[in-house]
Write a protein that binds this DNA or RNA. Structure first.
Lengths: 208, 208
DNA sequence: AGATTGAATATACATTATGTATATCTAATT
DNA sequence: AATTAGATATACATAATGTATATTCAATCT
């Protein structure tokens, strides 16, 4: 006799609520903790009012939980505004807006810093985060293609893309923030640096 | 009766040799390992042909060993050339040279990447590395002071210093390298970006 | 109403690390 | 010959991830 399986609205809702509570507890723990080293599933489970095994049930592993937290932060981090930014008529203005959006994203929730720390100890999680960052790279590439003069070399374009990609990364944001800047001040510095990175693409004489 | 203590040349030499062997084994393990997570004192001790307790005897802790490895790499990483670079007549040429020296340093031994990963899980080790990086910041600050026009605002100077500090950091080097560049190509990109960062310091009209 | 299902729990265990404590061994030195 | 310091042997405490098994309990199906 085949087992009769069913879907339960009330059950699913309860499960989803548990998931949310655990993710919330995890990001809070990341935010308030001193270091990713102290981030344990035990702590998270207790903070969420569930058992450690429930965390495993829901997320499979520590890595699974971290990925879920990252995605949750991304969902509420304002990255959806990128779509609008990319369709702006002026690609330079779009780039400025993109920098704004990412500075806001990196600064919104300090848990993202801890998640970047987690990349150091978990190569597969690092890969997952890098994949999510590829969207940013594609965005930059698209803008550079619109900004670059026709005679700009592929190498010059690649240089600009990679440099701007690095300038808009979390580590750069963190480094500039650590030097005692507000989010808006960091944003301004990064924007200026990105403008400078565009220079070689528009000069009519690209002789080095 | 007070214990009669003594220094032993042969003993000291043997100890120093042990220390060196452990540090060598540790940096090799860092270089060859996939992740800092797999870096354990057990592994290092076995690779060095000593006991784990000997490592504790010599370095006190995992952190102590990591710091010793970092210092060893720094000692042989060519950073001593910085002294000459800083005394160059042309501060812009000095900055170019500085970028060269650091690109060489970051790329010389892949263990430095793993040591930067270790910063994520050990706040005190991170602090120790940051202190060692402060030398780079001071170098940049000195050069900027020589390059900046008199009318350049303190804010513009600080912007340039912090940006160049970020551009010459390991994370930036790693990001540009990951995009498929040789050490020299990364060096060229960083140098160009640093030149651009100097622009606002020399324009006679620094109106924002 | 009674059987069944699935999420959450309880309990236990294996494994891997760091770090501490104590006693012993051994070669260098007095 | 006694002593000293570095290295070792052995044991233990603690914390963390991950797996396994059985159980509780409310929601759902027949």
């Amino acid at each position: 006799m085949p087992p009769r399986s069913y879907v339960s609205p009330a059950r699913s809702a309860a499960t989803a609520e548990t998931r949310e509570r655990v993710i919330e507890a995890a990001s809070r723990t990341l935010r308030e903790g001193e270091s990713i080293a102290r981030f344990s599933l035990d702590t998270v489970a207790k903070a969420a009012g569930v058992t450690r095994l429930t965390v495993y049930n829901q997320f499979g592993s520590r890595r699974g939980l971290l990925e879920a937290v990252f995605d949750e932060i991304a969902r509420h981090g304002g990255l959806h505004q990128l779509a609008d930014a990319m369709t702006m008529a002026d690609p330079r203005a779009a780039l400025d807006r993109m920098v704004e959006i990412f500075c806001a994203f990196w600064s919104r929730d300090s848990a993202v810093g801890r998640l970047h720390d987690a990349m150091a100890t978990d190569p597969e999680f690092a890969e997952a985060v890098r994949e999510r960052n590829e969207r940013r790279r594609r965005g930059v590439t698209g803008l550079i293609d619109r900004i670059a003069a026709k005679q700009a070399s592929p190498q010059a374009r690649k240089d600009a893309v990679d440099l701007i990609f690095a300038l808009t990364s979390y580590p750069t944001f963190a480094s500039l923030s650590a030097a005692g800047r507000s989010r808006d001040e960091v944003c301004r510095v990064v924007q200026t640096a990105c403008h400078a990175a565009l220079q070689p693409l528009t000069l009519s004489n690209p002789s080095s």
